[in-house]
Write a protein that binds this DNA or RNA. Structure first.
Lengths: 232, 232
DNA sequence: ATGAGTCAAATTGTATACAATCTAGAGTAC
DNA sequence: GTACTCTAGATTGTATACAATTTGACTCAT
């Protein structure tokens, strides 16, 4: 099976390296490459039909982004996050997102039109009969990133994006749980209400509940169902 | 003037790219390359006497680390942080470090030997007549990273390191201020005391004071002295 | 003088060849 | 059977050549 980079979703990239990064990220997120799956430069060159230079750049990028791990002289492998590491990612996320809502509750709400758009999207998605876990997870991520964006700190947003991108893999598990989407929607509205009311402590608490519920779902799901693929 | 990568501090690196990254980082931090100074692959190849491959990798790394900015088809340039961006970095740092002390105050103090070592180092440095700003800034950074390490979250530590490394440039300004070292030392001891007493709110407050004082010093210094080099 | 068009230089993107290093397995001595 | 050595293969690191793109200045027509 020979892939071509051009197939990749129809999106255009400025160079081969960026395109390869996007392709591999997509595959890793969708579990098409299992954890610990090895990737070598030569193999990818052949599959994508490109030279080592762009492949090499792409692998380095993915390694620094935490999608791959580098094994000296043995190539790269899809990084397998253990239970503890996932918890750590959630903790950093919590720290940053609590700060976001604190800022917003203190010095003014996010832009009304953005928030309204999010509310509408949630409503549409919940009414649909076929709710894909991935769509829900992406919408959830979008909500949190919209808040971060509204806080107006680009550096904060960048760090949060890096973490959320990596957690997307596990958040899909989160939304696999029954009625999780409805609960999340409810929690999001609560967060917005508290921010609007400039209730700093309340907003922090609402955000903490939202994030920790997700974390607990992932926590439980991993222990239950994924013990085979992911050995702790 | 032809540099050789081997000169670089005597440290050994596994490959040329890592060595170039370290060299350039060092120079940027010491203002040997002014903000907006342009760096092209070809120029660095000639200076270091190596080929484009490792130089290219190094430049990409420095760009993603926030030391350089990439200008499409115009090479790279030393990133000039404006006032607002520095404030943003300090905010993210604050969010993460508040979380660190909160964790520590809640679930147990850092290791005693590490803390004692820090205390001793502070004492030595304060007694020396020649206090270099850079040494003080590095010790300050070390203190904060030791706390983060004690919190036991590797992901958190990585994000914090990235921010602190970038802020080192400005923290040297911070310690240029008279008696700042003594004040910082005092504040650090206060933080440790509150953590030991499991006083969460007190520890957060002490940390916030410490960080915001530094931020204000940098804030003022930049407005005063650096308006020439750094145009806002 | 001003604007469009053109071309050389600068710069990055990609391919490929070669060098250095490490891994793992086969083979051999004991 | 076990441990040791040596070697072939795998893999990354580095150098270099070539292609593609963009920039900026120069020319020429208006």
């Amino acid at each position: 099976m020979v892939d071509t980079v051009e197939q990749m979703g129809g999106k255009q990239f400025s160079n081969l390296s960026a395109s390869i990064v996007a392709t591999l990220k997509e595959r890793i997120i969708h579990w098409q490459y299992p954890p610990e799956h090895r990737l070598t430069e030569a193999e990818l060159c052949q599959k994508f039909g490109v030279s080592r230079s762009p492949v090499r750049e792409a692998l380095r990028t993915l390694a620094t982004d935490g999608f791959l791990k580098k094994m000296p002289n043995r190539g790269y492998a899809v990084k397998q996050y253990n239970f503890h590491e996932i918890e750590e990612l959630y903790e950093v996320r919590l720290a940053l997102e609590l700060y976001v809502v604190e800022c917003l509750a203190k010095r003014g709400a996010p832009k009304k039109d953005e928030i309204d758009a999010l509310k509408r999207t949630w409503t549409c998605l919940l009414n649909e009969s076929s709710k894909k876990d991935e769509d829900l997870a992406r919408l959830d991520t979008l909500f949190h990133e919209t808040l971060a964006h509204a806080a107006g700190n680009k550096s904060l947003l960048r760090h949060l994006r890096a973490i959320n991108e990596r957690l997307l893999l596990f958040r899909m598990i989160d939304f696999g749980k029954a009625h999780r989407a409805e609960r999340t929607c409810h929690q999001h509205l609560e967060i917005l209400k508290r921010i609007a009311a400039k209730d700093v402590a309340g907003a922090r608490k609402a955000m903490q509940q939202n994030i920790e519920e997700g974390r607990n779902n992932v926590h439980a799901a991993i222990k239950d169902a994924l013990a085979r693929a992911y050995s702790f």
